[in-house]
């Protein structure tokens, strides 16, 4: 796969140009962000396969984390059940998105555009924009988990989620049905698939994954912050789309690449980290990410056109 090769090359370049890049400390923080970005990417990926999208990933992530933070800090719920609560709450918000999309019958773009605003507004109103920064040590320690001295626990966690998603979409009837409905809704419907249900399930999964990403971010920050995904959760959007799109998941639905999404997220994190290390200036990173997204989709398109040409010539 080209993406994997590109990553190796990038790592090699960054490591030679700047020795600091390969330091255990940098690798630790790199893999930590990488894990989080992967889960954010997965969260978008599972709705992209339905041919829809979820602009509310950031809002759901933050809202769910605030629920988790409140449970842990205010209600004294133990860490694991509180995390489960947060994920369930995220899935519930996603379920609402799915239901609205199916019931109103408009594209999920407009539904999630509305709910990103609603979820975030409600969260701010309810929390009065205050953060939970006295979270239990057991939770905060999750962010410090470290293997072999340089791999953050976040990365294996994200990879395990990835394996689960791969199995779900390739080896279960529901997963296959979601893909079929995403590729061609009417054909799937006429083949006896309950297509509405596939859409709702995908959105609920997306919400759950967004919540998980939120929890990982909160563990890293050591606090549940209303501002951690930017204004109405917008700052998650770029990583959320970058990872699956770079990884070859089609926006039109029906085709998924879990491995690609993981690699896409890895590449984004490495480039961001490398650029910051190179003192390019944090201010220019966003522009580079935009250029990379543009280059990636254009190249992908070009490849498709070339493949088509070759087939016709034969």
């Amino acid at each position: 796969m080209g993406l994997a090769l590109l990553i190796v090359v990038l790592v090699a370049i960054f490591a030679t140009v700047n020795p600091g890049f390969a330091s255990p400390f940098n690798l630790f923080s790199l893999t930590r962000v990488m894990g989080i970005d992967m889960v954010i990417g997965f969260s978008m990926m599972v709705v992209l396969v339905t041919g829809g999208l979820n602009l509310a990933v950031g809002s759901i992530g933050v809202a769910a984390v605030m629920v988790g933070g409140w449970a842990m800090q205010v209600q004294g719920v133990p860490v694991l059940p509180a995390m489960a609560m947060a994920v369930a709450f995220g899935a519930f918000l996603g379920w609402i998105n799915g239901q609205l999309t199916v019931r109103i019958g408009v594209h999920s773009f407009i539904v999630t555009l509305a709910t990103m605003s609603i979820f975030f507004g409600a969260m701010i109103v309810l929390t009065k924009a205050e953060s939970f920064n006295a979270l239990p040590g057991a939770f905060v320690d999750l962010g410090r988990l470290r293997y072999w001295g340089f791999v953050s626990g976040m990365l294996p966690a994200a990879l395990i989620v990835g394996v689960g998603l791969w199995l779900f979409f390739n080896r279960t009837s529901l997963g296959r049905e979601i893909l079929a409905a995403g590729a061609n809704l009417e054909a799937a419907r006429l083949s006896g698939i309950r297509v509405e249900r596939t859409i709702v399930v995908a959105h609920a999964m997306s919400g759950g994954l967004a919540a998980l990403a939120g929890l990982m971010l909160a563990a890293r920050n050591g606090a549940a912050l209303p501002s951690m995904a930017g204004h109405i959760g917008m700052s998650w959007l770029l990583p959320a789309f970058l990872a699956p799109v770079l990884g070859g998941t089609l926006l039109t639905g029906g085709v998924i690449s879990v491995v690609g999404t993981a690699l896409g997220a890895a590449m984004v994190t490495i480039i961001t980290n490398g650029l910051l290390q190179l003192q390019v200036g944090e201010f220019w990173v966003q522009m580079f990410l935009g250029l990379i997204l543009l280059a990636a989709v254009l190249l992908d398109r070009l490849r498709g056109v070339m493949a088509e040409r070759r087939r016709q010539v034969r």
């Binding site: 789309f241 799109v245 926006l251 201010f283 580079f288 935009g290 997204l293 989709v297």
Partner: peptide, 22 residues
């Protein structure tokens, strides 16, 4: 390119905003 305007303008959103911040 025939790519959806959503993705293209998401990319240019980052580029234009990135230039602004830069």
């Amino acid at each position: 390119s025939g790519i959806s305007a959503f993705i293209i303008t998401l990319a240019t959103l980052s580029i234009f905003k990135g230039i602004n911040i830069g």
